[in-house]
Amino acid sequence: MLPQSIYQSDLDGRCVFANRALLASVGMSMEELRGKTPFELYPRELAEKYRQDDAHLLKTGQAFETIEEHRVPATGEMIYVKVIKAPVRDVRGEIVGIQGIFWDVTSEHIARQLSDEREAHAATVRELSTPLIPIADKIVVMPLIGTIDSTRASQVLDTLLDGVVARQASVAILDITGVRDVDSSVADTLVRAARAVGLVGAKVVLTGIKPSVAQTLVELGIDLGSIVTSGTLQSGIRYALQQMHPASAPSPGPLP
């Protein structure tokens, strides 16, 4: 017996053929099933969907496929079914009925749903781990916490660059107060972020540089180039605001 259920119906939706798999799923013989419509086999809501699908197929003459939730009449089990329907034509090319094939794809559908949920969860985690926060007109802050590996470094660059462009920011503050370790890889990420942001016309302010971090950067010989550095987030924000309103703000001087 084929795992796929195969059937054929006339223009009124009455069954004229069903294979053994379909007969087993509805718990009927061919004699019992012949002439019956979906409204005599399935819940009304599902049968109505079948009717609408068939009407669309008869109108367009085009085959289609879909995945739908389905209750097995013989067992009451809820499954996901992939359905492919196509018109049946006579020798003159006129549509005289509908033929279809459907089969259980519950395991594949659930696996896909779980995969989508995992990806959505991962995306949420990524967003929470690299948030971009607008604090004033044309100023955004990205507080970084924890460890920055190669994957997260890529997320930082993508989120920062996309956010700067989307918000038309002029200053992006990267706060590394919560970063556990600053090594050459982290420093390279910061430099690349500054260069990328600079290419779209904005400036990076690096805040949260503790003495130990500053010493590490010196020992590594990292040239931060055009990145403005600051010991605290507050002083970095003050500097950014001064850049936005230079006429009304005092000269920033050295950043603490």
Rank of each mutant, 00 (worst) to 15 (best):
L2Q: 15
S5D: 11
Q8D: 05
D12F: 10
D12P: 01
D12H: 13
R14A: 08
L22M: 15
L23Y: 01
M30L: 13
E31H: 09
R34G: 08
P38S: 06
P38L: 00
E40Q: 14
E40I: 06
E40S: 13
L46S: 07
E48H: 09
K49L: 13
K49I: 13
A55V: 11
H56C: 10
T60D: 06
T60I: 07
T66Q: 10
E69D: 08
R71I: 15
V72M: 10
P73Q: 04
T75W: 00
E94I: 08
G97D: 00
G100P: 01
G100Q: 04
I101K: 07
S107W: 08
S107K: 11
I110Q: 12
A111E: 14
L114S: 10
A120W: 02
V125N: 02
E127L: 13
L132F: 08
L132D: 01
V141S: 02
M142W: 00
T147K: 11
I148M: 05
S150C: 07
S154R: 11
S154E: 13
D158F: 05
L160V: 10
Q168P: 05
V171W: 00
I173K: 00
D175M: 04
T177F: 03
T177W: 02
V179C: 09
D183K: 07
D183F: 08
V186M: 09
A187P: 06
A194S: 15
G198N: 04
G198W: 03
V200I: 15
V205T: 04
G208I: 03
S212P: 02
V213I: 15
Q215H: 12
T216N: 11
E219Q: 15
E219C: 07
L224D: 02
L224N: 01
L224W: 02
L224H: 02
G225M: 00
G225A: 08
S230G: 08
S230M: 01
T232H: 05
L233N: 01
I237W: 00
R238Q: 15
Y239R: 04
Q242E: 09
G253S: 06
G253F: 05
